[in-house]
């Protein structure tokens, strides 16, 4: 059994789909933070069989919950203080995300217009469908 030490202050992202932790690490720009980050891949899980976990020793406000909600709103966000879980944050699908994914439609104005942010809008919350704000192309793969 591999042991990763407890963190005193920070947050733990639990129930990440197995193999997706590195992608989340990059999307959340955790590489830019000057703090301890532990990535655990393929941990055993009673709910998911296999899961990934990310532990980050920094203020939870540094975390962009919208991006995380967009990537996978079923991830559990545990806020840690004094080595204990003090809050579990609920993630939801953000109504709009900016510059997280790029529109892949070659006919979209985002393919040529300088400085235009890539914005995707939640158009069907039940089916979790996001569409480009400009051309309405469906986002095929969230991550």
């Amino acid at each position: 059994m591999l042991n990763v030490g407890k963190i005193e202050e920070g947050f733990v992202l639990d129930h990440i789909k197995a193999g997706k932790s590195l992608s989340i690490y990059h999307h959340l720009q955790l590489d830019k933070l000057d703090c301890t980050v532990a990535i655990i891949k393929n941990a055993r899980s009673s709910k998911m069989e296999r899961k990934d976990i990310i532990k980050v020793e920094c203020d939870v406000n540094m975390l962009n919950l919208d991006i995380l909600g967009f990537i996978d709103h079923t991830i559990t966000v545990n806020v840690i203080k004094d080595g204990k879980i003090v809050e579990k944050k609920q993630l939801s699908l953000p109504k709009e995300i900016k510059n997280v994914i790029r529109c892949k439609n070659p006919r979209c104005i985002t393919s040529i217009e300088q400085g235009l942010p890539h914005i995707f809008v939640l158009t069907d919350p039940q089916k979790e469908v996001y569409r480009c704000k400009y051309c309405e192309e469906k986002c095929r793969q969230r991550w």
Binding site: R107, C108, I109, L116, K133, Y134, C135, E137
Partner: peptide, 23 residues
């Protein structure tokens, strides 16, 4: 010819913009 171009224009315009066809 690019889809969404009139929307980009509308976001920057100080006059009404009518989409006359975008791709």
């Amino acid at each position: 010819p690019k889809e969404g171009a009139p929307m980009v224009a509308a976001g920057r315009s100080s006059i009404p913009v009518i989409n006359a066809g975008d791709g």
